[in-house]
């Protein structure tokens, strides 16, 4: 008697749905990573626990004041128009200051003292000018809580 061979079913894994899902995930992550706007850093360091009222005199420290209207003063001299965000005059002066400090082998230090109502964009404009002049020692004069009342 002739025995009939059993029909062997070939085992196949259908990859199509998985590839579809993976492609969807891939497109999702690619698109979402493009939409995230890259943020950048402008860093500064606080002068230890000392606040402005307790600070010691440092010869190469320059103070930049920013008024409510956006006027910028370095050692009581006004630089650039309040609407100027790239601040070429200030950058030029800060580069000279940095070169002088380097020549004297002392660190160049900037203290920024903005008024209370100054907008953050103006503060960052000044920090940007310090970065352009390659001055890393930047700090803020925040005063003590008593001074604020």
């Amino acid at each position: 008697m002739k025995l009939k061979h059993k029909t062997e079913v070939k085992a196949e894994v259908d990859m199509t749905p998985m590839i579809d899902c993976v492609f969807l995930l891939l497109v999702f992550f690619m698109v979402s990573s493009t939409f995230v706007k890259k943020e950048a850093d402008i860093s500064f360091a606080l002068p230890g626990t000392a606040e402005q009222s307790d600070s010691v005199d440092i010869p190469d420290e320059q103070i930049i004041q920013i008024t409510e209207n956006g006027n910028v003063f370095l050692n009581d001299l006004e630089y650039d128009a309040p609407t100027s965000s790239d601040m070429p005059e200030l950058i030029k002066t800060l580069i000279l200051f940095k070169q002088t400090a380097d020549a004297n082998k002392v660190p160049a230090m900037i203290t920024i003292a903005p008024e209370d109502n100054v907008k953050q964009q103006r503060v960052v404009d000044v920090l940007n000018a310090c970065t352009a002049a390659k001055i890393g020692n930047v700090t803020f004069a925040v005063g003590s809580e008593d001074e604020d009342g």
Binding site: D41, I42, N128
Partner: peptide, 11 residues
């Protein structure tokens, strides 16, 4: 809405 600083270093 972060401010603009062209000289800022990317994180």
């Amino acid at each position: 809405s972060l401010p603009i600083a062209p000289k800022a270093a990317l994180q």
